[in-house]
């Protein structure tokens, strides 16, 4: 029995059964043991990292970035690569939105027959598989198939993002209020009319919000896909770092930061407007 004036915290403490406390203690102890084992087995050499020689080399390496390269010819190349990165992320996201929506419709349908249940499970499995493979692995695969440049980068972003957006879109469609669709169906609307008049307009703000958020992610991903030869700023960064052209690399990094910040800000404003929050 709890004391009549017990605070919620006190009630919680009094009511926590001994078995739960023992289990929680065991979990925390196991986690601590895992962390200790990780430090013990890894050859981290923290002391070497902080040696004066290492610190000096780091200072020299970081100093090489300044001042960033700003010649007009280089800035023109940088602007073109930035556009390529933006285009890759935008096109990859757009493809993912269209394909993801088509797959989401199949994944969100109520399974009325054994065949439709099988199709729904198959599509959900495909979406899981697509998003389980990271963009960088997709890019490496597409570079083999489609050669170097922004095209494989775009396909890589699209492939991973279809998996992510398809799942998010399917969940959105499943959780929509049923009343508008019911009203249309009762009035004799076909399933396509129900989708166009009720489902899609209701879902659009949430679908756009998810898409913009994924575009933000894809800008960041597009910036590093170039490392495996998929074009854009990433490829430029990889090229200059490989040749130890640190001032050029610094300019590329600044351009990456600027693009990500710009798209983050735009996307944030757009998502707030769409969701009314």
């Amino acid at each position: 029995m709890n004391a009549p004036n017990a605070t919620p915290e006190a009630t919680l403490a009094v009511d926590t059964p001994p078995a739960s406390r023992r289990r929680a203690t065991l979990i925390v102890a196991a986690l601590l043991a895992l962390v200790a084992a990780s430090f013990a087995t890894l050859d981290l050499q923290l002391a070497a990292f902080l040696e004066p020689d290492a610190v000096g080399k780091m200072r020299e390496f970081a100093g090489g970035f300044f001042p960033p390269e700003a010649s007009p010819a280089f800035l023109a190349k940088l602007a073109w690569a930035s556009l390529e990165t933006l285009a890759m992320s935008a096109l990859g996201t757009l493809i993912a939105m269209v394909v993801g929506l088509l797959l989401a419709i199949l994944a969100a349908r109520a399974p009325r027959t054994a065949g439709s249940a099988l199709l729904r499970s198959g599509v959900r499995l495909l979406l899981n598989a697509l998003r389980s493979i990271p963009e960088l692995v997709w890019a490496a695969l597409w570079v083999i198939a489609a050669g170097l440049g922004p095209f494989p980068g775009t396909l890589a972003l699209a492939a991973h993002t279809v998996g992510v957006l398809g799942r998010l879109f399917a969940d959105t469609l499943e959780n929509l209020p049923a009343a508008p669709a019911r009203a249309l169906r009762d009035n004799g609307a076909s399933e396509s009319a129900v989708f166009l008049y009720a489902t899609l307009p209701q879902a659009t703000p949430q679908l756009m919000s998810y898409s913009l958020y994924r575009w933000e992610n894809n800008i960041r991903a597009a910036s590093i896909l170039g490392v495996v030869g998929a074009g854009g700023l990433g490829q430029m960064l990889h090229f200059h770092l490989s040749l130890f052209q640190m001032r050029e690399a610094a300019s590329v990094i600044v351009a990456m930061l600027a693009i990500v910040a710009m798209v983050d800000a735009l996307s944030h404003v757009a998502r707030r407007r769409l969701t009314g929050s």
Binding site: A179, P180, R182, A183, L184, D186, N187, Y197, A198, P201
Partner: peptide, 13 residues
């Protein structure tokens, strides 16, 4: 047929 529901079922947008 015409339908009228308790919760009206109007389309919000």
């Amino acid at each position: 047929l015409g339908f009228q529901f308790q919760a009206f079922h109007l389309i919000a947008h």
